[in-house]
Amino acid sequence: MTSLGYHQGVLEVKQFLRSREQVVFTLAFPAIMIVVFGSIFTGDIGAGVGFTQYFVTGMIGTGLMTAGFQALAIQIPAERDRGVLKRFLGTPMPKWVYFGGKVLMVGFIAVLETVILLTVATLFFGLDLPSSGAKWLTFLWVSALGITACTLCGVAFSSVARTGRSAPAVVTPVALILQFISGVFFVFTSLPGWMQTVAGLFPLKWLCQGLRSVFLPESFGAQEPGGSFDLPRVAIVLGVWCVLALVLCLMTFKWTTKRDG
């Protein structure tokens, strides 16, 4: 049974790898962003810590959100429109297999793009990788929880766009605004208070905060809005988003378009 999910994942990854533009833009995007930001902000964020060290967390977060949320919220409506979902629905394939395939694809892309990003940032922009096993462990669970929340949100959001063609127009602004208010492009605490409050409702801010605890020195926690990196709260908020999005998925996911009944 589980092998079906695996094969579905292999199929998804194959489809992804064979569409060349998609591969280049998706996998290289976070790395290109760090090249842009690393080249503009060459100075220190303070205490001898380079800007790269801060921005890389935003780029990892953005990359995970793009791979999970944006990609699925655009791709699923397109597949629904083209009747791919309807075709699967007409077979004995268990429904989870479709989502299992998407999860494997998202995981594959997320790992690959993060590795590329970290490699570029380390080689060319002086990024210091986490120094302790504990930090790597934090990196791992924060990323895993973050990508899970993003993936589930992407599946849930896939029911918002009514047609495959309108999906990018519906999804892109949401992703873009979240990036601006969640401290991806600016130092989060330099944003207006109300904006920080709004961002605090969404997962991206917490994902980035969790990642900052990995890539910034311990002492920087004091500069966070809450006075610390507050990892327990990162876990709780991301966890709540996972549950919320999962419930939404189960309640609202559509296999056919309105036109199909």
Partner: peptide, 24 residues
Amino acid sequence: LQGTGEFDELTVGEVVRHFARFYP
């Protein structure tokens, strides 16, 4: 069905073999 979606980047063999897995 009428006009169901294709799997653009996959080959005919890959798609048919994959769907075969769904059936006992």
